[in-house]
């Protein structure tokens, strides 16, 4: 019975995601809703992304300073911070922050709309709830997560610079030269593709969990928690798979 339910859920999730993505190119378009979601997801998350990514960059730089100084290799801090942040930490950390703030909000908002019969009303009024509610959220995530990731990566690099120069007493010029050297097309692509995939994953999972809410306040808690947990797990798993595929496609040898 559980396996049957799981298969049904996966099938429903798959259909919802396809339907939601199709809404991006098929009429009717809900531009206002999409812009509202972009504002909520993007502008609303800017501060928290800034803070988290700044400290991640600083912590990474600090760890590397401590380790590399004993080996006399502190000049590599910029390179290692750059590669780690651009390819891996920037996209993943920003996606995790996005899940906590935006994804949880999507699931709880839609869940509460289901319980309050607002989704029923949308259907009664003749709207397609997926196009009206899910597609704008997918667009919001698809557009704003990459933007936030770029900002997050830049902030992390600045945080790394601060520690490398003012705590590790390294040359700022060496740090930024290392960063510039690692900003190759391959490295940038290896990091830039991820937030688009993560954006679709987070928004579709959270919308699906929100729209599947049943059972009052406890049901809402369950669906919101599941939305965040599943999104985080899927970000980590898909990050590994994407890294494997991208390294292969971009010609990196492992």
């Amino acid at each position: 019975m559980k396996i049957k339910e799981l298969v049904n859920d996966l099938q429903d999730y798959y259909l919802l995601t396809l339907h939601g993505l199709r809404g991006i190119v098929a009429r009717p378009f809900y531009f206002k809703d999409a812009v509202f979601q972009m504002d909520y997801a993007g502008a609303g998350s800017l501060l928290i992304v800034f803070i988290v990514d700044l400290f991640v960059g600083m912590a990474l730089s600090l760890q590397l300073s401590a380790e590399l100084s004993s080996l006399g290799m502190k000049m590599y801090i910029g390179m290692i911070v750059g590669i780690s942040v651009v390819r891996e930490l920037g996209p993943v950390v920003t996606a995790l922050v996005f899940t906590g703030r935006v994804g949880a909000g999507m699931a709880s908002e839609l869940g509460s709309m289901v319980l309050g019969h607002q989704v029923d009303m949308i259907r009664v009024f003749g709207f397609d709830p997926v196009k009206k509610l899910v597609t704008p959220r997918i667009i919001g995530s698809l557009v704003m997560l990459p933007v936030l990731t770029v900002i997050g990566v830049a902030v992390s690099l600045v945080g790394g610079y601060y520690i490398a120069v003012f705590v590790g007493h390294q040359s700022g010029t060496v740090y930024w030269t290392s960063i510039r050297n690692i900003l190759t097309l391959e490295n940038v692509l290896a990091g830039a593709i991820k937030p688009f995939i993560f954006g679709v994953l987070i928004s579709s999972i959270c919308c699906y969990m929100g729209l599947s809410t049943k059972g009052g306040a406890i049901g809402l808690r369950r669906s919101t928690t599941m939305a965040v947990v599943l999104s985080i797990v899927m970000i980590i798993i898909s990050d590994f798979l994407l890294t494997r595929v991208l390294l292969y496609l971009l010609g990196f040898s492992v």
Partner: peptide, 19 residues
């Protein structure tokens, strides 16, 4: 179903207004 639903107006228990 849209055509069917046009024949009715429904008011849910809590009003179901968009918050």
């Amino acid at each position: 179903l849209r055509e069917v639903r046009m024949k009715f107006n429904i008011v849910f228990q809590e009003g179901a207004l968009f918050d």
